[in-house]
């Protein structure tokens, strides 16, 4: 029941993982800080322990930026994401800057405009920016990405993300963001079926378990 909230800890306990490190990366201005914050907020609502860190200073204002989130059923000791379990990448420059951080066990979720040699681990490629644009909310690529991430990994409940959006987004742009999240969920479900079926990649499989 991925949409039950407040059960994150119990749900996770059924699976094998104790903590998952997520890296969300994009161009400065694409809202990676916000999406990392929303993911952490949703994880907290699902009774998980969360640690969220992000690029800071000039790095966050120019060029590529990242936001890391650790979601854990126990208290998080080491606070950094050394190599992300999930790498959600919204832009080419962010891929160049942070794509090298992935490992064999990573799952990358890449915007379809990102080009370059595939990194380690498995990857799915989805039109995040195009989906946001087609939905009339070109500013919400980050939220589409969040939808894809939740659809594929079920790291948090959908409801907690919607509540986080409602709590943090200004009322006049909330409907567009909620639509972007739904579009991301649909995009993620389809991509999972198309690109990951039978793939058997452990990260994906384990996180879906339970």
């Amino acid at each position: 029941m991925p949409d039950e909230r407040g059960d994150g800890s119990a749900r996770w306990r059924k699976g094998q993982r104790e903590a998952v490190g997520v890296r969300i990366a994009g161009r400065g201005g694409q809202g990676v800080m916000l999406s990392g914050y929303l993911l952490a907020l949703a994880g907290m609502a699902d009774a998980l322990h969360v640690v969220q860190t992000q690029s800071y200073g000039p790095e966050a204002r120019l060029g590529a930026a990242k936001s890391d989130v650790i979601l854990s059923r126990d208290e998080v000791a080491y606070p950094e994401v050394s190599s992300p379990d999930i790498f959600l990448c919204l832009s080419q420059d962010a891929y160049s800057a942070y794509g090298t951080g992935v490992s064999e066990s990573s799952l990358s979720i890449l915007d379809s405009r990102v080009e370059g040699a595939p990194g380690a681990g498995s990857a799915i490629v989805v039109p995040l920016a195009a989906t946001a644009r087609d939905g009339g909310a070109p500013f919400a690529t980050n939220i589409v990405g969040l939808g894809v991430l939740v659809a594929i990994t079920a790291l948090t409940s959908e409801r907690s993300i919607r509540e986080a959006l409602t709590a943090r987004i200004k009322p006049d742009s909330l409907p567009a963001n909620l639509r972007a999240f739904d579009a991301g969920l649909a995009l993620g479900a389809k991509a999972a079926a198309d690109q990951l079926a039978g793939n058997g990649r452990p990260v994906f499989g384990r996180l879906r378990a339970g």
Partner: peptide, 10 residues
């Protein structure tokens, strides 16, 4: 320290 200052936790 810089990490703790900019880190979020519940």
């Amino acid at each position: 320290d810089a990490m703790l200052c900019h880190m979020r936790e519940n």
